[in-house]
Simulated scan of single mutants.
Amino acid sequence: MAAQLSYVNVFARDVVALSGFYQRVFGFPEIEAIRSPIFRGLDTGKSHLGFNALDAYALLQLSEFSDTRGIKFLLNIDVDSQPEVDRMVPVAVEAGATLVKPPYVTYYHWYQAVLLDPEGNVFRINFMMS
């Protein structure tokens, strides 16, 4: 079997609130069978999105890296059309996101918007025009 992405995990100050943000905005259902006090998982359809409490730094022996600053990853969430990107941006902002760059056409022919979630993580809402 070829390798494939199963999860992207985000370290979060509040796993319940941050996973709830992505549930409300994109409708991703929680995978309740793997819920714990320091973890929530969401099913995105193609892969999964996990949220780890900051306690997970120690659990994973990553404590020395827990004070890392700056943007370290970017979530890309694809939708079915340009109008869907336009529709989703105000939904995300109303749910607590900050709009960084309004929807635009990229040089690689995607229509996308760039936002920050309530904890300051970058995500894009994309439509691949072809």
Rank of each mutant, 00 (worst) to 15 (best):
F21R: 02
V85I: 08
H48S: 13
F73D: 13
H48F: 06
V100P: 08
N52Y: 13
S130Q: 14
S6C: 01
V114R: 11
A12L: 05
Q23R: 01
F39T: 08
V25S: 01
R69Q: 14
N126C: 13
F39S: 09
Q112M: 09
N126Q: 06
R124Q: 15
A95L: 03
R87W: 00
N121G: 08
Q82K: 08
A2K: 14
E94W: 00
L49K: 03
K101F: 08
I77A: 02
V105K: 14
I34Y: 14
E94H: 07
A58H: 10
G20Q: 03
A3H: 14
V89S: 02
E32C: 02
D78L: 10
N76D: 04
V8L: 15
S130E: 11
L75E: 10
A3K: 11
A56T: 11
T68F: 08
S6M: 10
R87S: 00
L42D: 07
V16K: 01
F11I: 06
R13W: 03
V16C: 00
F21M: 07
S81I: 04
A53S: 14
V8W: 06
A97S: 07
I71V: 12
F65T: 12
V10M: 12
L5S: 09
V105P: 03
V85E: 02
Y111D: 03
Q112T: 11
M1W: 03
F11Q: 05
K72I: 11
I77M: 01
S47T: 14
R87Y: 08
M128V: 07
I125T: 04
A12P: 00
G27T: 01
A95P: 03
A56F: 13
H48K: 15
F73K: 08
A3G: 14
N52S: 08
V89F: 00
V122P: 06
A58M: 02
S6K: 11
H48I: 01
P103S: 07
I77T: 04
A12M: 06
G41H: 07
A97G: 10
V105R: 14
S47E: 15
A3W: 12
